[in-house]
C-alpha cells in the first residue's frame, strides 16, 4: 500500500497574475477580477464561450485547471479526480442571489445565478470541458489545509479511485481571490508531502 506519489505541476492565480510551475505566464495590473479573467482567457487562447456564463469562482478555478490539464499532456479519458477547497464556498454568488430576493419590489431570483450558489459547480464546469467522469469533492476550511488535502488525495490514488488528482485551493470572496491548484500522480517533480504542498502554496 506504500507507493510514493508526486506533484507533477502547479499553478497560482492571485493579484492579477498567473504563474505556472513557478514562472509568471500572465499579468494584467489595475483591473478588476472580471477583466483580468477575460485577459487571461484571451492570452491562453481558450476557445470556450461557456466561460462567459460562469460565475467568478468558476472562472478562477476553470482558468487554473485549464492551464494544468493542457500542460500536463493529459489524455481525455484519464481518470483525474478533482479535490478543491476554500474558505468562502460560493459566497460571492450567494450574495448576488440574496440581493435578488431581499426586497419585495425587486424580487427576481434567476436560475442562472442560483445554480452557481454551490462551490462544487466550478468542478462541474471543469469536468465538462475536459470530459472528466471522475470524483469531485469540495472541502471548506478556515485556511489552506495541506494535511487533509494530502490524506484525501493519497486515499483516492492508493485505493484506485483515480489515477491522478487535481487538487488545491480556489478562493474568491468579493475582490479578493487566490487559486492554487496542483496535479498529483505517480510521477512528477516534487514528492507529494504536506511540507512540499505548503511550500508551493506559499511561493507564488
Amino acid at each position: 500500500m506504500t507507493q510514493e506519489l508526486f506533484i507533477a505541476s502547479h499553478c497560482h492565480i492571485s493579484n492579477n497574475m498567473v504563474s505556472l510551475n513557478g514562472t509568471t505566464v500572465h499579468e494584467q495590473k489595475g483591473t478588476d477580477f472580471v477583466s483580468f479573467a477575460k485577459s487571461a482567457y484571451k492570452k491562453f487562447d481558450i476557445d470556450y464561450s461557456k466561460f462567459f456564463k460562469m460565475d467568478n469562482l468558476s472562472k478562477l478555478a476553470f482558468l487554473a485547471a485549464d492551464l494544468l490539464l493542457k500542460d500536463d499532456n493529459i489524455k481525455e479519458k484519464q481518470n483525474i479526480a478533482l479535490v478543491f477547497s476554500n474558505r468562502a464556498a460560493s459566497l460571492d454568488t450567494d450574495r448576488r442571489h440574496q440581493e435578488s430576493i431581499s426586497k419585495n419590489d425587486s424580487y427576481f431570483p434567476s436560475p442562472a445565478v442560483f445554480v452557481y450558489t454551490l462551490p462544487n459547480i466550478c468542478m462541474g464546469e471543469i469536468s465538462i470541458k475536459h470530459k472528466l467522469h471522475s470524483e469531485n469533492a469540495f472541502f471548506i476550511f478556515e485556511k489552506f489545509n495541506a494535511q487533509y488535502l494530502h490524506t484525501y488525495t493519497e486515499s483516492l490514488i492508493l485505493e484506485k479511485k483515480a489515477e491522478k488528482v487535481l487538487c488545491g485551493w480556489t478562493e474568491l470572496d468579493g475582490e479578493k481571490y487566490k487559486a492554487f491548484l496542483y496535479v498529483v500522480g505517480k510521477s512528477g517533480i516534487f514528492t507529494h508531502s504536506t511540507h512540499q504542498i505548503t511550500r508551493l502554496y506559499q511561493n507564488k
Binding site: 474558505r87 464556498a89 454551490l118 469540495f138 472541502f139 476550511f141 478556515e142
Partner: peptide, 24 residues
C-alpha cells in the same frame, strides 16, 4: 462562513480536531 459554523460545533461538543466541512 461554513468553517465558522464548523468551529462553533467543534467547540460546543469538545472535538479536538477541526471540522472537515464538505459542500458538494
Amino acid at each position: 462562513y461554513l468553517s465558522e459554523m464548523g468551529r462553533k460545533i467543534k467547540n460546543f461538543l469538545g472535538f479536538q480536531n477541526d471540522a472537515i466541512v464538505l459542500s458538494n
